[in-house]
Nucleic acid binder design. Structure first.
Lengths: 216, 216
DNA sequence: CATTGTGAACTCATTCACAGCG
DNA sequence: CGCTGTGAATGAGTTCACAATG
């Protein structure tokens, strides 16, 4: 990190969004982009773009803007997505299957290298991605063998904490949690929750609130 | 709304989380809960719990706490989840299928009442949920007929904006967007983005940052 | 007397405005 | 001259601390 240590979480989120937009800009043949244009594309504010990038260094050219290719490389480095990450998916239900076949992941270096379940009917089954469903009891060994650094929980809520515990025991300390529950983990472990129901609740609240206002 | 109009977004998110925890508390037989206990269960802070609730009214009993059943009802009203919402899913890929079978949705009043695609091979297919995949060209008619208020986009990024436009034309102004792109919509339309890749990017950044610190 | 409800203090994030520079 | 980089100003959200009260 070039400057301060206090980076807002929101900055990291936006960097990811800038990055995707830069890919599109490159694809469309752009070589340079101004903070104003990038902000516009990302539905943000130019000063914010500059400040976000400013936390990590000076990537622009005054009077010109940012090099589309170079800035991608810089952001990849900042986000640590300039390399592959191996993921293990725990819970081969509909959602787990969907993620295993999610093309966007592999295209971006997020490799699903193992899938686990505890259902005897599923264990051993061949997946479209070429993987075989493994017994959850093999988790520990497989994580070590396959160099898995990210665990993805796609089990029902009732199993999520137990799975998290298994992942922790196997020294996985980054979890993407799709189950509709908050798992508790020690400080050293990072959890990103993706909770569909919470998102729907927020949407409903806003929708209701908006229509309520309209009736006044 | 009982008090101010300036409710932080984060408050709404937390209310959804409190709500789910209250369901569990009720299931476990609790009748009352203090802000301290609820905060602990939700990995939050008691003052925050009280402030969040305080935006909407006085739901507690001093010296005692909150009635588990009553507070659920209050939060349901605040979030506008005290009724059913009809959703239409656009894009019957793996993710769309997963959502169509997602039991948590229907259990909470989020009803998937239609599924749309533009792939002739999929149109007309019977889904496990009992629905038939509809032609995207029927979107407008079906939304009106089935009273759909929430559109769920599970198409590839390339199709997302076009789908959003169709939804807007059909007067759907709440969208849950799973596609890895930011769609642009008029002010009147609400969008909640659920972007798996952004979440992974954040996780990688934190993971990398954490391990970097450890090596110092 | 335990716990809520809430103004005031504080911390964190965004936006402004302009100096600095290619 | 145009656009970046950034300190200073503003705004938003969280936590504190304690008065109010069932």
């Amino acid at each position: 990190m070039t400057k301060s240590d206090k980076i807002p979480d929101a900055t990291i989120t936006r960097l990811s969004i800038y990055y995707r937009q830069l890919e599109l800009l490159e694809f469309d043949g752009y070589r340079m982009v101004s903070s104003e244009k990038l902000a516009w594309l990302c539905q943000g504010n130019p000063a914010q773009v500059r400040k976000d990038l400013g936390y990590f260094g000076e990537f622009g050219i005054r009077g010109v803007g940012y090099d589309v290719i170079d800035l991608q490389a810089q952001i990849k480095k900042i986000l640590a997505i300039n390399r592959d990450w191996n993921m293990g998916i725990v819970g081969v239900g509909n959602l787990g299957l969907a993620l295993l076949q999610h093309h966007n992941f592999s295209a971006r270096g997020f490799k699903c290298v193992a899938a686990f379940d505890n259902d005897p009917d599923k264990i051993g089954a061949d997946l479209p991605s070429g993987l075989k469903v493994r017994d959850i009891r093999e988790l520990d060994a497989a994580i070590d063998e396959l160099d898995i650094e990210i665990g993805v929980i796609t089990t029902p809520a009732s199993a999520a904490q137990a799975v998290a515990n298994l992942l922790l025991k196997a020294n996985v300390n980054a979890i993407l949690n799709f189950s509709p529950t908050r798992i508790s983990v020690p400080e050293c472990c990072l959890v990103q929750n993706i909770d569909f129901t919470v998102m729907l609740d927020i949407l409903c609240h806003k929708l209701d609130h908006q229509t309520t206002l309209q009736h006044l």
